[in-house]
Design a protein around this nucleic acid. Structure first.
Length: 555
RNA sequence: GGCCAGUUGGUGAAGUGGCUUAACACACCGCCCUUUCACGGCGGCAUUCAUGGAUUCGAAUUCCAUACUGGUCACCA
């Protein structure tokens, strides 16, 4: 029995040839230097922080070169798939404003001429290429059971031999075609394995875009190409898909580095042009229990899921900017020199990419986020806050809607200045910092925790507030006049006009203006720390101010 | 265990033989400014680049060994 007959027996339904697929998926007609890249997750329902970094860059390079960015779903393993797993990924990408040029849109729809983009729907394509390998004597059916494989592995471990299905350990490699036929017809389960022509003592050399020249031993493992369920294994699917989709740049995590020799061999055997590879450092974190550095894990770490940032109200752009600063070491400097510029104007460079895995630093992200929000206009903050609270806090959302103009003015306090106030690191902070600005929330008894400092005597406080209302509050004062009057008030009450005076002669005064304004601040807001008091009072207006102060005075 | 990669302060890192008595940013700590907070300003925070050896007039930068960390060795991706 010839190899061709064996191939026919194995894949009787394949009606196309590799040449046919070359025509169906022709070379792309793109301009010189255009990059075709892709994001190829399995449909686990959400995007991992590390993948997002890769994706961001895989999206950016085609943007810079008029290339193409593809979303391909790698669902050849049922165990990894979850219900609506594709939808979750598409949503995450949307949330992060990463658009795809081609690829899956959902479980059964896609855009682009190189589809389908879901691997389970490409089964016949893989079969065609597997068939051609069998025909050429480069692949064969293997009938080894899991137990048998386990056994040889244990034996190899015991004898300190290299682990894997190769050489004399590849039991099914030299079966006769007659025997293969017999067992196939008998119904024995089998996988299709590569008959690797590699020699372990020889070297493969390739150039990684971020790591430079890397030397590996040639692959001599007869890796599985097609599983017994008829679907391909990652290595095989990757090579076939990335060739047929005409991918020019394969960007992926460092965990793939050691399988590159298998991939190179497969590209070579199939007669495919080798794409460029870039293996990015993993995003790590310190494990709280062991204190060891480890890969950020979807299972253990809430911050690994990209949706976490959405829930926290951390702006999408802040996450992107953080990722870019991890991704390219000169990005941060560029951003500091070009504050507010779109990160798309930054030119990405693989050489500026770190090869070592970086520790995920939430503090840094928070800082970037804080700066980012501080540069937004009040209107933008309002719009984003509205979106956030609509999803996560109905009560506050309703207040923002009801008092729209007021809220925007509130966000404008100390914003229109060369160095704006930076108190919000995330949209979820806003309520905690501003609730007292809304009478409905202020009215709640549980919120009435006045944080008086310095002057704590109830009668003294009442006296100060009463005097302020009667004599020193003038609605139309500008800030300077307003503060002058506060000084007058201080003087009348026996406090110094200037803090310095009090500090120099503490015996001469009861305190200083600062103490007086603190009383006012707390009476109005309950908080000892607030933005500019004058602007808050201004925003309140006469009636609301009187109401708040009287609440303290009349108690 | 084999193979591969990585190793510069608490963190991200700049740095590719002399310009580095190691940039910048975050965090932290002081001081100043200031009616609170935030902002801002100033200063501190690695004499040393995992360790040892070699090359060199000269090394964080080149080479070799060792150590450590990570990845990988599935009919998972």
């Amino acid at each position: 029995m010839t190899d061709k007959e064996l191939a026919e027996l194995l894949f009787p339904n394949v009606d196309k040839t590799p040449e046919d697929y070359e025509k169906i998926y022709p070379k792309r007609n793109l301009k010189e230097g255009a990059v075709v890249s892709r994001f190829a997750p399995s449909p686990t329902g959400f995007v991992h922080m590390g993948s997002l970094l890769t994706t961001l860059i895989a999206r950016k390079i085609p943007d810079e070169t008029d290339g193409v960015f593809i979303l391909r779903i790698e669902d050849t393993d049922q165990k990894r798939s979850v219900e609506n797993g594709i939808g979750g990924i598409v949503d995450d990408l949307n949330n992060f404003d990463i658009k795809i040029d081609e690829g899956a849109l959902g479980e059964d729809s896609f855009v682009g001429d190189y589809g389908p983009y879901i691997q389970s729907q490409r089964k016949e394509i893989y079969e065609c290429y597997a068939k051609s390998l069998v025909e050429r004597g480069l692949a064969y059916p293997c009938f080894c059971s899991e137990e048998e494989l386990d056994e040889t592995r244990k034996l190899q471990e015991l004898n300190k031999e290299r682990i894997g299905y190769y050489g004399s350990f590849a039991k099914c490699r030299d079966l006769s075609n007659e025997e293969r036929k017999e067992r196939i017809l008998r119904g024995d389960p089998y996988v299709i394995r590569l008959k690797s022509p590699g020699v372990y003592e020889k070297k493969v050399i390739f150039n990684d875009l971020v790591r430079g020249k890397i030397v590996f031993p040639e692959n001599d493992l007869d890796v599985v190409l097609i599983k017994s369920d008829g679907l391909p294994i990652y290595h095989f699917a990757h090579v076939v898909d990335d060739h047929l989709m005409r991918t020019t740049h394969v960007l992926r995590g460092e965990e793939w580095l050691s399988s590159v020799p298998v991939h190179i061999q497969l590209f070579d055997l199939l007669g495919f042009e080798l794409p460029k590879f870039a293996h990015l450092g993993l995003v790590m974190k310190i494990d709280e229990e062991t204190g060891q550095k480890r890969k950020l894990s979807k299972r253990k770490d809430k911050e690994a899921a990209v949706s976490y940032y959405h829930e926290q109200g951390i702006p999408v752009m802040a996450v992107k900017l953080y990722l870019m600063t991890i991704g390219n070491s000169n990005f941060e400097e560029w951003l500091n020199q070009n504050p507010g510029r779109d990160y798309n104007e930054f030119k990405f460079d693989f050489k500026k990419m770190s090869a070592s895995g970086s520790l995920f630093d939430l503090e840094k992200l928070i800082n970037i986020s804080r700066n980012y929000i501080s540069r937004l206009t009040a209107q933008e903050v309002y719009d984003n806050a509205l979106k956030y609270y609509q999803e996560y806090d109905e009560e506050f959302y309703n207040l923002l809607v009801k008092y729209k103009d007021y809220a925007i003015n509130m966000f404008n306090i100390e914003r229109n200045q060369k160095k704006p106030r930076k108190d919000y690191a995330k949209y979820s902070d806003i309520k905690g910092y501003t609730w007292y600005m809304f009478d409905e929330l202020f009215a709640k008894e549980e919120n009435k925790k006045y944080e008086y400092q310095g002057i704590t005597d109830k009668e003294e406080i009442k006296k100060i507030l009463k005097l302020y209302l009667e004599k020193y509050y003038h609605e139309d004062d500008d800030e300077q006049t307003w503060f002058e009057r506060l000084k007058d008030l201080s003087e009348e009450m026996g406090y110094s006009r200037e803090v310095k005076d009090y500090k120099e002669n503490p015996d001469k005064y009861k305190g200083h203006v600062g103490d007086i304004s603190m009383v006012l601040r707390v009476a109005v807001t309950t908080k000892a720390q607030t933005p500019n008091l004058y602007q808050i009072i201004k925003l309140f207006g006469k009636d609301r101010l009187e109401k708040r102060l009287n609440e303290v005075i009349l108690k």
